[in-house]
Write a protein that binds this DNA or RNA. Sequence first.
DNA 1: CCGGGGATTATCT
DNA 2: GATAATCCCCGGC
Length: 201
Amino acid sequence: MKKIPLSFYDRDDVVQIAKELLGKIIVTNFGGQITSARIVETEAYIGITDKASHSYGHRRTARNEHMYSPPGTAYVYICYGMHQMLNIVTNKKDIPDAVLIRAVEPLNGIDLMAKRTGKNINDKTLTRGPGNVGKALGIYKHHSGLFLLDKEIYLLDDGEKMIAGKIGTSKRIGVDGAGDDALLPFRFYIKGNPYVSGKRN
DNA sequence: CCGGGGATTATCT
DNA sequence: GATAATCCCCGGC
């Protein structure tokens, strides 16, 4: 199994990348504590022109600084004062596109995820929703800026093929304040997967 | 089963 | 001082 190469992230179509990230594997290794999971739900954010993005209109602050980092960088921020949200930065340095990881399916280290979240290993909400993903994988905002080809957080491709009919699309969640851009069909998920957020897939 | 609202705090104005 | 790329519980049907 190989790490996803830099060229995967270094492209200008973040929406396409968000779609292609479905089925890929994310691994975290913090001090030997290893967890891995398959990505089952994502959202694309087109930095500059997207009202739902933290970097809309070139807004640049201490918080979203890492969105302007080179492709393949992790951007982690706090939402609602308590949730750690993991994003994958794409496109060239200084072009702040990113993909939010909204849900994953646990593969290895499920015990550890259960411990981190205080949930049962059979609980399908263990890694459902972006806040839970960060919690289960042990990700915190101080991990923001890590490079995804390094050894603490990285992505793998095990060759799992996503057929088009298996991918669902919808508007993004929790971005109602973004005007017209709230309606953009930039959320992608694997149909029928029990870890995908929302009532229906 | 479903909808409403409280939790809780970093961040920006 | 208000808001937020959320989550979970609780009450009502």
